[in-house]
């Protein structure tokens, strides 16, 4: 029942039943802490990861449907020593209270910015409608997303012409 997953650039064999949600494979088999269990129902966004660059709710996505597609978690965005642009923005703005929802928010940010490097306010709100934060950190999350967009553009300058 082993499945091969490509997570944060590395291939790993996971010995779990094919219907196992990706979230449990990432947390329990790969020992990753970023994706969180919040509801298991696809309702809160705490488990958000990227699959082929798109935001996916890992709690309702069986590993059998992932196949060879690239999975990314916050661990793939950078490290504490060398954080990526999205991580830098959230750290710089201290955009956390408990922080439990934040890795999901960061992966949603990453997905949004890859698609739309200069999102308007209403586009941010629409993209984040499925991500819940109970601590009320939303003001700082919004600021961090805007800041991440700036850092992201600096790190990935658009080629003119």
């Amino acid at each position: 029942m082993a499945t091969t997953l490509k997570v944060n650039g590395a291939e790993t064999r996971v010995d779990a039943a094919p219907e196992t949600p990706l979230l449990y494979a990432l947390r329990d088999d790969l020992g990753l802490n970023g994706p969180k269990y919040g509801c298991g129902l696809g309702q809160c966004g705490a488990c958000t990861v990227l699959v082929d660059g798109r935001a996916v709710l890992s709690c309702v996505t069986p590993i059998s449907v992932i196949g060879s597609r690239a999975v990314e978690t916050v661990e793939g965005l950078g490290t504490a020593e060398a954080p990526g642009p999205v991580q830098r923005a959230f750290i710089e703005l201290q955009a956390m209270q408990c922080g439990y929802c934040i890795p999901g928010m960061m992966m949603r940010t990453e997905a949004l910015l890859r698609d739309n490097p200069d999102p308007q306010d209403h586009e941010i709100r629409a993209a984040f409608q499925t991500n819940l934060c109970r601590c009320g950190t939303h003001m700082r999350i919004m600021k961090a997303i805007r800041r991440a967009a700036e850092l992201y553009r600096d790190a990935n300058p658009v080629q003119e012409g």
Binding site: N33, G34, V74, L77, P83, Q87, F90, M96, G99, Y100
Partner: peptide, 17 residues
């Protein structure tokens, strides 16, 4: 700055989970 923020933002072990 809170040190736990950088930890939580990069997938460090921070929660009981």
């Amino acid at each position: 700055p809170r040190p736990d923020i950088a930890l939580k933002a990069t997938g460090g072990a921070a929660f009981i989970q």
